[in-house]
């Protein structure tokens, strides 16, 4: 079963049109992966869709790296009773 981090990487690759194999947990969405502002919004939306959660946009957009996104999402899943 894919981990939260695997799924975050998969969604990131799909939205930013990158190869998932090239994405690592310490990659910064903006400076390393080239996410522009509209893509940041799209990433948040696609994470919500992938995990079936609702994220506070201020909190979600404060996340900068792939690894911290996985941690943040795991926390939200736990809060909202979503099994991952």
């Amino acid at each position: 079963m894919a981990t939260v981090q695997d799924r975050v990487i998969e969604v990131t690759a799909r939205v930013l049109q990158l190869d998932a194999a090239d994405i690592t947990p310490d990659n910064n969405f903006t400076s390393d992966l080239g996410a522009e502002s509209v893509q940041s919004i799209e990433l948040v939306a696609m994470f919500e869709e992938e995990f079936g959660i609702e994220m506070d946009e201020d909190g979600a957009l404060a996340v900068t790296t792939v690894g911290s996104a996985a941690e943040f999402i795991a926390g939200v899943c736990k809060e909202q009773g979503v099994e991952v």
Binding site: S37, I41, V44, E57, D58, L61
Partner: peptide, 15 residues
């Protein structure tokens, strides 16, 4: 709503 790329999103939020 933040209407971006043809859909309603949360955008950068109410703040």
């Amino acid at each position: 709503a933040w209407f971006l790329e043809g859909v309603v999103t949360k955008g950068f939020g109410k703040r």
